[in-house]
């Protein structure tokens, strides 16, 4: 496995220094073009990384090609400075969480930040999903694959999204995973659900799980564009939905204000 050094700037072509030459060759071996290699050097220099760039090695081993490696680093330049041992532990941990070949690569290219997060942080979220929200191990894997950004979200709001879907909307975990629930913000979830509910198109199931109307499936109205949501499910107009969004935001804000005064007094 080639090691990459980036302490020195790219040398002028005529001058032959042993070390940088090796680096250039290493980059070339990974398939980087000269211009691409220069980009890598440039950023590495800015990031003041003293010795090497283990992320390139790690990505290379995972089968990334130079184009996608560059994209990853562009999205998350922090990765330039992550230590090799840390990277290896983090990748191993993601595998342990069920993100196997294919999924692992997809998550990393989609959300490179995942490699910049400490294992503790990642595992805390996975534990929250399993223990507090009672998702199965497989479901947790699916959630992490579909919505890795939740790893950086505040736990209280994650739990709130789950509780809203579970208690307020009466949904089961499997539906939530299918609908990629965690891709939505709490506000968006409340807005779409609240709109349907007040239009009479969604009901919270009673204790026996029954409703008077047939609720639309979560996966049909959450992971879809607003246009599809309005034309296919809510059967309404953009104008109405925009006003509703404003009204609901104000309602919730005022409710929080009231709760705040209640707990404060």
């Amino acid at each position: 496995i080639p090691r990459l050094f980036c302490s020195a700037p790219p040398p002028p072509k005529a001058v032959q220094h042993p070390e940088p030459e090796l680096t250039m060759r290493a980059l070339a071996e990974m398939g980087f073009s000269e211009t691409q290699a220069e980009v890598v050097y440039e950023v590495a220099k800015k990031k003041r990384c003293k010795h090497q760039v283990p992320i390139l090695t790690s990505l290379f081993v995972l089968g990334f090609n130079p184009d996608s490696m560059l994209k990853v680093l562009e999205k998350c330049p922090d990765l330039y400075v992550v230590k090799e041992s840390q990277l290896q532990q983090r990748i191993a941990n993601l595998r342990k969480l069920g993100l196997l070949e294919g999924s692992l690569q997809r998550v990393i290219s989609h959300y490179p930040q995942i490699l910049s997060l400490p294992i503790k942080k990642v595992n805390a979220v996975s534990r929250l999903l399993r223990e507090k929200c009672q998702f199965t191990v497989q479901q947790v894997t699916d959630i992490l694959r579909d919505s890795p950004h939740i790893l950086q979200e505040d736990h209280t709001s994650l739990e709130y999204v789950f509780q809203y879907a579970y208690f307020r909307m009466g949904c089961q975990q499997a539906e939530m995973v299918k609908a990629k629930l965690f891709r939505l913000s709490v506000e968006e979830l409340q807005c779409r659900h609240g709109f349907l509910e007040r239009r009479g198109l969604y009901q919270t199931p009673d204790k026996k799980g029954q409703t008077l109307i047939v609720n639309p499936k979560l996966k049909d109205f959450l992971p879809v564009s607003e246009e599809t949501f309005l034309t296919k499910i809510a059967l309404s107009t953009q104008e109405e939905f925009d006003v509703f969004r404003k009204l609901l935001a104000r309602e919730l804000e005022e409710e929080r204000g009231r709760e705040h005064t209640r707990t404060a007094s």
Partner: peptide, 18 residues
């Protein structure tokens, strides 16, 4: 819902909002 038909959902969400 019988009286207003398709208009009812719009009226309903209006009445349930400020």
């Amino acid at each position: 819902s019988l009286q207003l038909g398709d208009l009812w959902p719009s009226v309903r969400v209006g009445m349930l909002s400020e």
